[in-house]
Write a protein that binds this DNA or RNA. Structure first.
Lengths: 107, 107
DNA sequence: AGCCTACATGTAGACTGTCGACATGTGGAA
DNA sequence: TTCCACATGTCGACAGTCTACATGTAGGCT
């Protein structure tokens, strides 16, 4: 998966993966990999800063937990986060429609 | 249209718009706007450098023409460019499929 | 003549998100 | 004791897009 292509869609991916249940960063990375059948393999250098950014923006909250001696920071969607996710989904639809209309124009 | 979202797809858009006929930069910008019903309004600071880059990569060739006193640099797809366009189209399909599978997972 | 807009190309610097590499540490299995 | 999976995080490099600016022609309007 091309690096640049992902740009501007990471937020939507993260919010989407957190929609069903709160998860910690490492689990989020795994969830992205699983949901995409291995196509999405994002590094920690991408995901962790992005999560912090979304938290600063008020779309996520986080809390620490310790599971079998390992510390996890678990992220959870806020109300604003759910709204933002809806916005991201609609933006994604119009984005694909726009690019699609150029790439595969009606003859 | 979000700036970041376009990233990594500009090449595909440019190649696609040049598929049917050679065009000069200004006309390419207009073509993108028209094909997308106004959604795509890219600046010259994006398009001109991108065209040069694609030319350096061997996907386009250009030649100067003068039409009613105005100089135009007209770009044309090369054979490699057509191949690259096919690749971009298939990359676009798998990209939308991957992101879509995360954003709208099968329940 | 003077002015404005559309046409047309191009550059410069700022911005920012993604990347790869690195650092740190725990738990459990071989 | 060695190694890997788990887990979080930072850092600098990179690169493409953006806004704004610079330059110039053609043609219409007043």
């Amino acid at each position: 998966m091309n690096a640049d292509a992902l740009r501007g869609h990471m937020d939507a991916l993260l919010l989407s993966v957190l929609e069903r249940e709160p998860l910690h960063g490492y689990a989020i990375i795994e969830a992205l990999r699983e949901r995409s059948d291995g196509a999405l393999d994002v590094g920690t250098g991408t995901v962790y800063p992005a999560l912090r950014r979304l938290e600063r923006a008020g779309l996520l909250t986080s809390e620490w937990a310790t599971v079998t001696g390992r510390k996890r920071r678990t992220y959870r969607l806020t109300g604003d986060g759910r709204e933002a996710l809806a916005g991201e989904r609609s933006a994604w639809r119009s984005f694909t429609s726009v690019i699609g209309s150029v790439l595969d124009p009606l003859r």
